[in-house]
Every structure is written in structure tokens, then in C-alpha cells.
Computed example of a mutant assay.
Amino acid sequence: MTRLTDRHDALLLDLDGTLYRGPDPVEGAVDVLRDCSSSLWYVTNNASRTPAAVAEHLRDLGFHAPDETVVTSSQAAARLLADLVPAGSTVLIVGTDALAAEVEAAGLRTTRSAEPTPDAVVQGHSPTTAWADIAEATYAVRAGAVWVAANADTSLPTPRGLGPGNGAMVAAVAAATGATPRVAGKPEAPLMTDSLTRSGASSPLVVGDRLDTDIAGANTVGIPSLLVLTGVSTVDDVLWAEPAQRPTHLASSLAVLLEDESASLIAATDRWSVDRDGTVVRLASGSDRAAESGVEPTWADALRSILPAVWAMDGVETIEGVDDAARAVVEEWYGRS
């Protein structure tokens, strides 16, 4: 058996929802990554903390995470700014001091005021961002400043549920100016490109819990991906995912990294089949073949098996099981959505 991790020289790992949820690691994640043969790179859209602070948090949770293995959207945003404006240009910071430090490290000056008009504006998440901060960004963008967003995530996980992310604040400036920023974080290319460059990987695998950032980011730069259903995206999201957000592999947990590639690869099998009745997809099990194999198929097996067929269909709205095994699988899917 060749484990999935053994097929890839680097794992580009998302953090929240993939490795941890709130203050706690995802169950089994620390042990799984300890047994992986790939190099580990921690790739986050969060621009509010320094890479060193992120690495320290990961180490506190039990992960092996040297500072230099953390790649953040603040770093990508700073590099993008350095490509867009001359060295020594002034950049208005809407975000934390950690974001400002990355911009300064890129050879740019920082300010918190739109007077005089800065050369550029960069927005990253900060829980203390207020109307006055959004207003300064608006004044600068309307005056012609180059505008970069660390990421465009409209929401982010908090202990109380999903709260507004950086993208929500970016949307406020967009509404007030009619402008559109360049985005550094996932799913856009800059952060993914930085991750590939720094890892030096020839056969990387993106691992994440969000279709719209992690998986779409992998597809943006043309590398394979594993979606783990431990965070934001649900079974329902995967079933109806648009082409740009479809993963290569899918699993219920990171443990699949230590299994053969076939345990996570999205591909049709003879254990499950689908046909269409109007807007309904009808799922049927190959229960006899499953029984002969001696291996009981799971809801995740069924999902991986039928996704190619479902993704090829237009205009479908729901899935129904036509036998007991299929009905149990569909019930499990919708219980997870």
C-alpha cells in the first residue's frame, strides 16, 4: 500500500476547521500529521497574527510547526504590494500591527491615515476594525490608491459561530467606492504561489475544509486537493459544488492521509450508481458486490463514488435513495449538512 501522504512531498495545510476548531485540535489531527512523510506547510488566510504567533499556537496544540513553515495572507499581500508600487511607497493599513510589520518588511512605509493620500491600501482582518478605519480606506481608494485585500473571506469561525470576516469589511469599502481590490489570499494565486515557492514541492497536496478558499485555491494553481469534512463545507456543498471548487480527494478526517489513495480519491465505483428522474438524482447501492468484498461501504465511500456523475448533471435539486443502504447513506449526508 502506498499511503496518500507518500504520494506527495508537501502538504499545504489549512488551519481552522482542518487542524483545529477554536482552542482545540481536530480529533486525531496531531497524531496523523506526526506520521506523515510529507513536509508540512501551514497556509492561512488569517492576516491578523504574525507567522511566529501562528506557529507557536500550533506547537501549543501539539503540532510540529517551525516558524518558517507558516505562510500567511499578510505575507502574500505584502509581496503583492511590493510588486504593484515602488519601494518606499506609503501603504494605509486596515488591520493589525502584524500586517503592518509584513508590509514594512517588504520595503514599504505604513500609515493609518488617508491624509496625505497614500500610494496603496491593504486590508486584513482585525477584530478591532471600526467605521473610522473603513472610512480612511474609502477616502484613499476613492483618491486613487492601489487597493489590496489580504483575503476576501466573508465569514470566519468564532466560538459563537461564524462571524464577519475580512471580506465583509472589504465589501463595505467596495460598496462605498465602486472599486474592486486585488486579493492575495485563497482562492487567489498569490498565497498559493508563495506556498509552492517556499515549500519547493514538486508534488504538493492542498488539504482544507473549505471549498471556496482551500479547494478553489488549489484549482487556481492547478494542484490536487483533499477536502476534509471537519469544518465549514458540508456534504451538501460538495454535491452541488461548481467546477472551480471541486476537490480531487474527499474524506471525513485527516486519517485518510495514512491510507491508500483509493480511500479518498473521488472516482466512480461499482458499489454505488445513480440515475436521474427529472430534478431528482436516485442513488442505488451495489450491496451484493459490497457483501462479497467483505468491506462495508461508508457514507463517504458512496459520496466519492457518485460525485463524478452528479457533477456532470445540470438542473438537479435533490438526491433520494432507492434501497435501504442508499436511503441510510442519504440520511447520513443530510444529517451532516
Results as ranks from 00 to 15, higher is better:
residue 1 M to I: 00
residue 5 T to A: 11
residue 7 R to Y: 00
residue 9 D to G: 13
residue 12 L to Q: 09
residue 30 V to N: 00
residue 33 L to A: 02
residue 37 S to D: 06
residue 41 W to S: 15
residue 42 Y to H: 09
residue 44 T to P: 07
residue 53 A to N: 11
residue 70 V to G: 00
residue 72 T to R: 00
residue 72 T to E: 02
residue 74 S to E: 08
residue 77 A to L: 09
residue 86 P to Y: 10
residue 90 T to M: 12
residue 91 V to L: 13
residue 104 E to L: 09
residue 109 R to H: 10
residue 112 R to F: 04
residue 124 G to R: 01
residue 127 P to W: 08
residue 128 T to C: 06
residue 130 A to L: 12
residue 133 D to L: 12
residue 138 T to A: 12
residue 142 R to V: 04
residue 142 R to L: 15
residue 146 V to L: 07
residue 149 A to G: 05
residue 155 S to Y: 02
residue 159 P to D: 08
residue 161 G to F: 00
residue 166 N to L: 12
residue 176 A to V: 02
residue 177 T to F: 04
residue 186 K to C: 02
residue 189 A to H: 12
residue 193 T to A: 15
residue 194 D to N: 10
residue 194 D to C: 06
residue 200 G to W: 00
residue 211 L to F: 05
residue 217 G to K: 05
residue 219 N to D: 09
residue 223 I to V: 15
residue 230 T to A: 04
residue 234 T to F: 14
residue 253 S to T: 14
residue 254 L to A: 04
residue 260 D to V: 00
residue 260 D to N: 02
residue 261 E to L: 03
residue 277 D to C: 10
residue 280 V to E: 11
residue 287 S to G: 03
residue 293 S to R: 04
residue 297 P to Q: 07
residue 301 D to C: 12
residue 304 R to L: 11
residue 305 S to D: 13
residue 307 L to T: 09
residue 325 A to S: 08
residue 332 E to Y: 11
